[in-house]
């Protein structure tokens, strides 16, 4: 489905056409869910948070400053809601240390990954992302999946631009390390 620009639907909602909000929900629901799910790592909670956030956005739509992007404003609401609702539980994951990829070049890792089938690649990257910390996995999804700019990520998460850049650099490295580890494990098994 082709959507018009967000501001078109925002104006309609502001003029009393409530049904126009459904277009905004449909357009942004997947990314909204991903943001919440990256933080809380639980699909039921993520769905509830995403829904609450859309309702908050609807109630506060008059406060939305039209010079900003609606999606960035909405994602910021979702991020804050998810953070505030996150239970302080320790998620057990095998922490990836800041390993230096001395043994393999990134090109080699990319080449190795490309040898895998689509399904295997999907499993490997899912595992690598799941092993990242919540906020790191959110950053990488915003950057690569939603193709958000550094400025937008900074606005959503409240991190500084330079902090976002540094974090993205480190997360990329972590993902490559994990992909190579998985590849090595598979080779050993074979």
């Amino acid at each position: 489905m082709k959507y018009k620009k967000d501001i078109y639907y925002v104006e309609k909602v502001l003029n009393g056409d409530t049904s126009a909000f459904a277009y905004l929900v449909n357009k942004h629901k997947e990314m909204a869910f991903i943001i919440a799910n990256r933080i809380v790592r639980n699909k039921e909670d993520a769905e509830e948070i995403a829904q609450d956030s859309f309702l908050k956005a609807y109630q506060a739509i008059e406060k939305f400053k039209k010079e900003a992007k609606f999606s960035t404003w909405l994602y910021r609401i979702i991020y804050n809601t998810a953070i505030s609702k996150t239970r302080k539980k320790k998620i057990e994951f095998s922490a990836i240390e800041d390993q230096i990829i001395n043994n393999y070049s990134i090109d080699e890792i990319v080449e190795n990954v490309n040898q895998l089938s689509d399904e295997e690649q999907k499993i490997q990257i899912d595992n690598a992302i799941e092993k990242l910390e919540e906020k790191d996995s959110l950053l990488i999804k915003l950057f690569y999946l939603n193709e958000s700019t550094i400025d937008e990520i900074s606005e959503i998460t409240g991190l500084t631009n330079s902090n976002v850049k540094v974090k993205l650099h480190r997360i990329r490295k972590k993902i490559y390390v994990e992909l190579q580890n998985s590849f090595q494990t598979e080779l050993n098994v074979v």
């Binding site: 629901k29 997947e30 991903i34 769905e47 829904q51 690649q121 999907k122 990257i125 899912d126 999804k141």
Partner: peptide, 15 residues
């Protein structure tokens, strides 16, 4: 890779 991996979707009746 990341685009391929995405299987995070909200429920059908989310909207």
């Amino acid at each position: 890779l990341i685009k391929k991996s995405t299987n995070e979707k909200p429920s059908i009746d989310f909207t």
